[in-house]
Design a protein around this nucleic acid. Structure first.
Lengths: 142, 142
DNA sequence: TCTTAAATGCGACTATGTTGCAAAAATAAA
DNA sequence: TTTATTTTTGCAACATAGTCGCATTTAAGA
């Protein structure tokens, strides 16, 4: 199935209206395998939406579970597709953050260890964050 | 050795001047076992320093490795002592963030798994972040 | 005491993110 | 197709986090 078709179905199934911006935003997520920040989106989207519009679309997509938030080195929120590129995992999700290009990647094949409740702490979710250099940045750093 | 004494030595050893604010800031870090945000500090410090002064002290302390940054749920930076309360670990550091009171705790006794370089990613450091309820918040939530 | 380098305060600025409200657009209903 | 409803958008204003330059103050060494 073509990406365009998948996007339209995704919006329909979640009761989200098919506006140019939201379609373009999903296309952007499909094209990029790393997490996108608000800024990345603002710069990439051609129809130049207001920043509030972007935040609200991201909120809606998150509510529906289409995208999820991923951490960034500098405490900036990034977002990536939950289903498709990234397996649907609420709890056991490993992310890789590149210190060089600041892209965030989902590493679904990396196992997150089971951790029991310790010291009276009730653990709801576990995040495993790897930092370093992604393959693109490793290649050109010599 | 008394905390006061330890603080003065820590400043001396790192070539940091013993101003009232910086001493008070270190005392605050010694008193609190959870990560402190800029806001926490601003509210706690009695000599009412400018926000820039706080940021600069935190930067200096981080450069010297006295404190380190810990993540927060809402994309706010928190800081905690590196040596003493928290073992000196650059790579294998587990943090617990309480969803209720938003405090961040260092969990040095939790083992972080060894992860090999995968998919051409060069891994420099691994962060393990646990979210849930801390013991204080678990007790009073019924 | 004098010197100098670090630390502070202030003003201005940037970036991220939120809220309320009115206008525009998409969908459902007639 | 037209109308009604609900979502989406844009704008203005606001809140918070964090940075930069510069003048002033202060700690520490000579």
């Amino acid at each position: 199935m073509k990406t365009e078709q998948k996007i339209l179905e995704l919006l329909s199934n979640n009761g989200i209206r098919k506006t140019n911006f939201r379609i373009e935003l999903l296309e952007l997520f499909y094209k990029n395998k790393h997490g996108l920040s608000h800024r990345d989106i603002k710069e990439a989207i051609e129809c130049m939406p207001d920043k509030v519009t972007i935040y609200r679309a991201l909120d809606t997509f998150m509510e529906k579970g289409i995208i999820h938030k991923v951490p960034d080195i500098n405490n900036v929120s990034r977002y990536a597709l939950t289903k498709h590129e990234c397996a649907e995992t609420h709890h056991n999700h490993a992310h890789f953050i590149c210190n060089s290009c600041h892209k965030t990647f989902c590493m679904d094949d990396i196992q997150i260890p089971e951790i029991q409740n310790a010291h009276g702490f009730k653990i709801n979710s576990i995040k495993l964050i790897l930092e370093g250099k992604c393959s693109d940045c490793s290649e050109c750093s010599h």
